[in-house]
Design a protein around this nucleic acid. Structure first.
Lengths: 262, 262
DNA sequence: CTTGCCCACTCGTCTATACGAGTAAGCGTG
DNA sequence: CACGCTTACTCGTATAGACGAGTGGGCAAG
């Protein structure tokens, strides 16, 4: 086994109160922060660190699991442990639903991704009528059944977002909104054509760790939280006409809002 | 040792491909989701699970670490492993900086927390001049040095947010803004008095796992991400007059924005 | 009754070992 | 040359054991 380049990592301090696996994690973290290990680069293998520090393998693995929990590194079976590369982020601006962005034939996601030079995809399209959850029902004003439109967004093959739109049946049933492809400008354009002129949106934002389901759907690395965004669209009569529930890989997004100082 | 109530948790499936520690984590997760273990309640001890499943202790600990990473449970040394209670959340509305909220003597944080029946505190107050980071300098329009105002917010003794405001020296030096207590209405009120009538704010939102520093400052449990919010305040001349960098415990916040449909 | 100690139970850290399984490169065979 | 096998290296899973340290209840001494 090739031994570690000396100087890359320090020694342990046996007099320290700090647990050994934490000391090792600290040294690796610092080396990563200082750029000694670059994005996507392979860290020393478990065996190398075992030898370098003179500890058991479980201790080294424990260190790695700390860094994984921080989202700094990820392990690949059979290959090694790598510094997690920061993916390109998608910026969501607060004017992204402005009418002027709705004129084109393609969806905002596609247009924007093309402009950014990445390859966008939308899949897992599902459109069906179903019972409204309590939360959705409350937001839409006590409806019992809704039209649900589910879809998953991918950038360069990587899933980044999973979204479900809920619409009251009396608005959506039998309209293009109930079709897999609602046509140019998306469902907001259709809603306006149907006489529901949009007035404003409300967005609620939370961040949390993903459920196992979300880990699978978004193929999330460990240590990556999700941003959970719930948007409600209101028409000019003040009626909630759509609720969109979106779960985004947090490392792929920056949300941006503009607030008046009123 | 008291044995586990039967029926609470199932058995392992030795034919399954799924790793044993994942099966155990799955069963515990499901029991929590079903409300068999309530918020704040103690899970079976490691020893009890070792006996129940007939596995080694490290395997049980591995299961717990999965659930910890998901933010579902937290361990307390000497006591046990508990279902993590959902703390009361603080809702931040997009009109929270409206002038009408600025009239009172107390800060928005204090007023709001009092209204919600919780006990608010602000500490770690630090006000000093320092070199602007590259990012802050860019946002403020190439300033070299800034006034930095740091403070930590607590609710019922629990730290929930750590914020730093940066202001250009030519605006803030020698004004009440450079005092620990800037007076009624906060620094936004002072900025307006100084002739910088505020026009709008820009907020950038990210979510990520906390750094070890942030874990300490916010006393974060493992499996709790942070929301990182960077707000820039612009005056009516279009000049950026303040940048506020805020790190929030994600389990304590819901952000809420209102967007025009324009 | 109060104080202080002990003990049982809890999780935290660490060692040593074993086998399984994914990866990639080298090497030999056809 | 192309294919498939072997092999070495990687991380994944699991066992068994040891000691440390925080917590809280019970018990004994004062």
């Amino acid at each position: 086994m090739p031994s570690l380049p000396s100087g890359l990592l320090g020694d342990l301090d046996p007099t320290s109160d700090r647990a050994v696996f934490r000391q090792i994690a600290d040294q690796l973290r610092e080396a990563i922060d200082r750029g000694r290990f670059k994005e996507g680069e392979k860290l020393p293998s478990e065996a190398e660190l075992v030898e370098h520090y003179g500890v058991s393998r479980m201790t080294v693995r424990n260190s790695f699991s700390v860094l994984q929990g921080e989202g700094l590194v990820h392990a690949e079976h059979g290959k090694g442990v790598f510094v997690r590369p920061r993916p390109p982020v998608r910026r969501l601006a607060s004017d992204r639903f402005a009418r002027r962005h709705r004129e084109q034939g393609k969806s905002a996601f596609i247009v924007e991704a093309d402009a950014a030079g990445s390859h966008p995809q939308v899949d897992s399209l599902e459109v069906k009528e179903e019972k409204a959850s309590q939360d959705v029902s409350n937001r839409l004003g006590s409806v019992r059944r809704v039209l649900a439109r589910r879809r998953r967004y991918l950038l360069d093959g990587r899933p980044v977002e999973f979204a479900t739109s809920y619409l009251p049946l009396d608005i959506a049933r039998g309209t293009p909104i109930a079709e897999p492809n609602p046509g140019p400008g998306g469902i907001y354009a259709r809603l306006e054509e149907l006489g529901h002129r949009l007035d404003h949106f409300e967005e609620e934002i939370r961040a949390r760790m993903p459920s196992p389901d979300e880990v699978r759907t978004l193929r999330l690395a460990s240590g990556v939280p999700v941003i959970h965004l719930i948007r409600t669209a209101f028409d000019q009569e003040g009626r909630a006409v759509e609720v969109c529930d979106t779960v985004m890989a947090a490392d792929a997004y920056v949300l941006s809002y503009q607030l008046p100082a009123t």
